[in-house]
Design a binder for these strands. Sequence first.
DNA 1: ATATCTGCAAAGACTTTGCATGAGA
DNA 2: TCTCATGCAAAGTCTTTGCAGATAT
Lengths: 157, 157
Amino acid sequence: MPHGNGMGPRWWHRRFRGCGYRMTVPRQAILDVLSKTSRHLSAEDVFMAVHKVYHHVGLTTVYRTLELLVQMGLVSKFDFGDGRARYELLEGSKDSGHHHHLICTKCGRIIDYTDFIDEEIKLLKETEKGLSKKYKFKITNHLIQFYGLCDKCKDKR
Amino acid sequence: MPHGNGMGPRWWHRRFRGCGYRMTVPRQAILDVLSKTSRHLSAEDVFMAVHKVYHHVGLTTVYRTLELLVQMGLVSKFDFGDGRARYELLEGSKDSGHHHHLICTKCGRIIDYTDFIDEEIKLLKETEKGLSKKYKFKITNHLIQFYGLCDKCKDKR
DNA sequence: ATATCTGCAAAGACTTTGCATGAGA
DNA sequence: TCTCATGCAAAGTCTTTGCAGATAT
């Protein structure tokens, strides 16, 4: 499930160079994994996927690269409450890939959804505006998550 | 800043008994701390506060009690991204204490806000309904957080 | 009386750090 | 060539677990 927004080895390479960083084999491999696999990978997930192809790449490098990607704004880091961070590549065009998560508190399944995003964005923008004014707080990001039971777990009890 | 919704030692005691649990000195002390102090305490914060009065109470008990309180629905557990869980006592009456958080990504300050809650609840209810239907997902809870820079940190750079 | 709770110590899970070696531009 | 990046091992941090002794009802 590639992105198809014009991202690719060369784009990433330029992006890295622009930030004063170097494009390396491990970094490229990590980006490949993030862009080709389904979402919500933990550092360990990424490590295992990369490790299949490049045995020499270590978990430490995966952590460092993911952190770097988060700082560069290319990757989002989430906490779904299971004690490990999850990462997903951001889409290219602004807001195009904007979505939130439904998290099953029983089996841990995560569903992306993009429904109601328009209404949501509208409300959020208003809210952000009001809150910025009232608390003199400069809002840069927001997080919305729903918790509950997924289709399968709901029926089990 | 006590709650004043009729909660108190006896109410908690009954609540515990109702769930088959016992009210003990450490549990009472932890509830006291949660109900009297300002919010967003980490397990360590609670431990230190309790420890001032009851030297014998251990950190393990604090973790276990907080987990218990979360399961009983008396306490909410949050993750503000700094690697440790935060806990806060829920208000008594339904939705009365409902609020969300502004989190300063620089200094870690957390601001509670209750503004726009009405609009928010309206949209969330709609969204929950739609999502429940579409994904057959039974939603039990939601999380909304805003990240950014607080008044003081915003000006520093 | 007895099932629940507690404290301590130890283990567990995830993540970060130090440092010598290796590699991109 | 000269930084920047990597891998390994070790340490760090928060949280959980095992178990004998203590406690609430």
